[in-house]
Design a protein around this nucleic acid. Sequence first.
DNA 1: GAAACGACCGATGGCTCATG
DNA 2: CATGAGCCATCGGTCGTTTC
Length: 299
Amino acid sequence: TFVRCQTELNKIQKTSQSMDEDSNESESENCQLDEDARSVEKDQENNKIQDFGEESEAEKSPDENFNNRSSNKKRKSQSSYLSQSKKRLKRRILDENIDNESDNEEEIALCLAPKKCKNLSNKDDRLKSIENKMDDFNQCMKKMSHSMRQMASYSNKITSHNLDIYRDPNSQENFTDKVDHNGTNLVIIVGRDFGDFARKVMRVLYSEEERKTHILPPGRPHLSRKPLDSNRFALLNDAVRVKYRLSKHLYDDFFKYHLRPNLSDFLVEERRRESNKIVRNQAKSAVSQIATQSQPGEE
DNA sequence: GAAACGACCGATGGCTCATG
DNA sequence: CATGAGCCATCGGTCGTTTC
């Protein structure tokens, strides 16, 4: 909100003022960078707030170019800020590199006297230290990618669970809590989400053979596989719709974009499971055969 | 802890259909 | 008739969970 922006701006102004007062040159570059960041932030905040104020005045003001020019100036000054920051950052990185290398006395010697680089043991040390750093870096990257995947999967789950867009709050529909198939109420089947639920219902409605040899209704004439029985498939759709309280007129989209891809993949996997199992077993038996053949040779 | 299993995702190819 | 868009089944690979 605007009020919150103002309070944040005040905070930033206060901190930057205190930083301005402390103009000691010996201050670390780190603080300098923080200050730069704050300055840029402040500048941006100023721009935002100015824009906010100008929004209403812009229409009244006859000289729009003036505003544009002033904003251009600000952009220019901001870019100069950024370029300065970049220079400082560059310098800081250089300094840090030197600092890190200075940790080791031998490395200091290497820095000061490059001729000694010819020494092979020193080279090995440096290579080892680089390798160690690379390992650390790789570990960090692994951790990062892992957490990113977790985040991605979490956000995915949220969207897949958020079915509100397929529900009509104005609808007066009374959802039944029973969809019967041969005496089995499909609605009471428990699944962790709509996909899991639908897969379980598929297992109830269709035999393994049917799941392996058919595709989703309505099917296509050019496809070799026949579609699953559409009456039972209608039961599945009813069960999903009733279970998750989805509107009739919105269900088509839900099916098209969420359920169908899910179930289509499910049928493919049903076919693949057995072949995968056979491949695994073949590989296993081949490995055990090789092991038994190599044993007498060793003795 | 490793193997097995299930679910998910992106890429691909074949097909239909609308459009110019 | 060529072309592009859209649909859908399929495949290969990866990841998370379950089982042993």
